[in-house]
């Protein structure tokens, strides 16, 4: 069984799980089950990331999404899903309409994607076509480790681009600034979320 076949097999498995779970999320009327299927779908996506040699992103996906975000969602489900609200049904007509539109939408998206000749783009942008630097400086599949380049990129260094590049070409910039912005953003969001969730309760107590 060649690596290709293993890759294909794993891809098929993860893809089916991810898509199927996603569809199940839509189809399910029970909020708890929806949460379960979502975890499945996100986890399968993480698998896909691993297949794509994005080990750090995949890990993050598992940790943050599956471990953090979904737990958060489940908290929300538990806080709100009291009694009658666990199942909120939609009308069948809505379902049919949503399904129709979904299929059309999918057709549209995929026809758009399919209309592009990715071969040209891939070939032009293939590791070989991209230039020596890329193949020399960053090759995830060969190195199997994206953590360091990612970390460097976040602190503003791009060894995958700058190493071996023409000395006169301008230096690539890393993601230091977006990283910082996102950090601050996170902080603000946390405070804001805490405030939103808390303020209402206090006002309720005041009302009471």
């Amino acid at each position: 069984m060649s690596a290709e076949q293993i890759h294909s097999g794993l891809f098929a498995l993860f893809a089916i799980i991810a898509c199927g779970a996603a569809i199940a999320v839509v189809m399910s009327q029970n909020i708890v089950r929806m949460a379960f299927w979502l975890v499945m779908s996100l986890g399968a996506t993480a698998g896909l990331f691993f297949l794509l040699d994005a080990d750090f992103v995949g890990a993050t996906q598992l940790l943050v999404y599956v471990g953090g975000t979904v737990v958060l969602l489940i908290f929300g489900v538990m806080l709100t899903a009291s009694g009658p609200y666990i199942r909120i049904r939609m009308s069948p007509a809505e379902g049919v309409l949503a399904g129709g539109i979904g299929i059309l939408f999918l057709a549209m998206v995929y026809s758009t994607v399919g209309a592009v000749n990715w071969e040209n783009v891939s070939s032009a942008a293939s590791p070989s076509g991209l230039g020596a630097g890329v193949s020399e400086g960053f090759n995830a599949s060969s190195q199997g480790n994206t953590t360091r380049p990612l970390g460097l990129a976040f602190i503003g260094l791009r060894p995958d681009r700058d190493l071996g590049a023409d000395i006169h070409s301008p230096l690539s910039t890393g993601y230091l600034l977006p990283f910082e912005i996102v950090s601050v953003h996170l902080l603000v969001v946390l405070i804001g979320a805490a405030y939103l969730a808390r303020a209402k309760r206090r006002s309720d107590t005041v009302e009471e």
Partner: peptide, 12 residues
């Protein structure tokens, strides 16, 4: 993740 946190707060 941030969105989820805020959205949950809104949902609550």
């Amino acid at each position: 993740a941030a969105e989820a946190a805020v959205a949950l707060a809104i949902a609550l």
